[in-house]
Each structure stands twice: as structure tokens, then as C-alpha cells.
């Protein structure tokens, strides 16, 4: 078999292919951005949930936990913790940390006040309402 193989064709395929597929990706991004609200019609992004998201971020929760499977793999998935444990358990748990059990993984005490705890719970409630296409496979996350 013989064939020509030129740098200019390879270069054109690189530029053309990249632009072509990036434009498709942009088109899909527009479609996704438009479809996200109806896909997640049940998810209530309340003001409290927005404040809770800031608490989630500024305490670096994703440094240990996953949320919808993304984050760190040191501590349990929290996307569905609202369903798994319920609001009161979450607040009580946050207040009781750290357990100081020797050798066990420790979660820091973040000293959140009651209003902040409510906001965080609102955020976790919102997370649990997101339509994840039935992920995780079971309640344990």
C-alpha cells in the first residue's frame, strides 16, 4: 500500500476537526443550558439553598465528600444525604463533630450557627432533588 501523508493535510484536519467538534459541543451546551430547568423541575433552588451552597464551598466540604459523585472519596456521598439521613440528623451530626474516636476518620467542627445549619440543609435538600438520571444505584451513595 502506498499513500501520501502530508503535514499540511494533517494540520488542516487538526484545525478543521477541532473547530468542527468544538462548535458541536457549543451547540450541545446551549441545548443543555436550556434543558436543565425542565430536566430538574423538582429541584427548588431557594435563597436558603443558595446561601447553603456558599457554606458548602467555603468549608471545603468537597475536600472529603462527594456531591453527585464529584469531590473527594474520603467521606460519604452527600447528594442524597437529605433523603438518607434527614435534616435533623445532619444538623445534629455537624454539631457533634469531631467524634475524636482514636484511629477513626475525623470531621472538623465548623461552628455553624442554627441559621447556617438550616441553609446548609436547604442546599443538601436541593441537591437531593436534582434529576441525576437515577444515580446513585442505591441510597448508600
Amino acid at each position: 500500500m502506498s499513500a501520501s501523508f502530508t503535514k499540511s493535510t494533517a494540520r488542516n484536519i487538526f484545525y478543521g476537526g477541532s473547530v468542527f467538534f468544538f462548535l458541536i459541543f457549543l451547540g450541545l451546551t446551549v441545548d443543555t443550558t436550556l434543558a436543565v430547568p425542565s430536566h430538574n423541575a423538582k429541584a427548588q433552588l431557594t435563597d436558603a439553598a443558595v446561601r447553603g451552597k456558599k457554606i458548602w464551598e467555603t468549608r471545603n466540604c468537597a475536600g472529603c465528600h462527594t456531591l453527585l459523585g464529584e469531590g473527594a472519596f474520603f467521606a460519604p456521598e452527600l447528594g442524597n444525604v437529605y433523603v438518607r439521613r434527614g435534616p435533623e440528623f445532619i444538623k445534629g451530626w455537624m454539631k457533634a463533630m469531631p467524634t475524636n474516636v482514636p484511629g477513626r476518620r475525623q470531621m472538623p467542627q465548623f461552628n455553624l450557627n442554627d441559621a447556617q445549619l438550616d441553609d446548609l440543609v436547604a442546599f443538601l435538600k436541593y441537591s437531593s432533588q436534582i434529576n441525576t438520571n437515577n444515580w446513585p444505584p442505591n441510597i448508600e451513595g
Partner: peptide, 19 residues
């Protein structure tokens, strides 16, 4: 290919065939 005996010719550019 230069070492190989002249054989069938592939039309067009190999890069395009990869694509």
C-alpha cells in the same frame, strides 16, 4: 513505505484516512 515494493495506491492523504 519507501522500502516496500510498489503496491496498491491509496487515493488521497493518509491523514484523511485516519480521520
Amino acid at each position: 513505505l519507501t522500502a516496500a515494493p510498489p503496491a496498491r495506491h491509496i487515493p488521497g492523504d493518509l491523514a484523511m484516512w485516519c480521520f
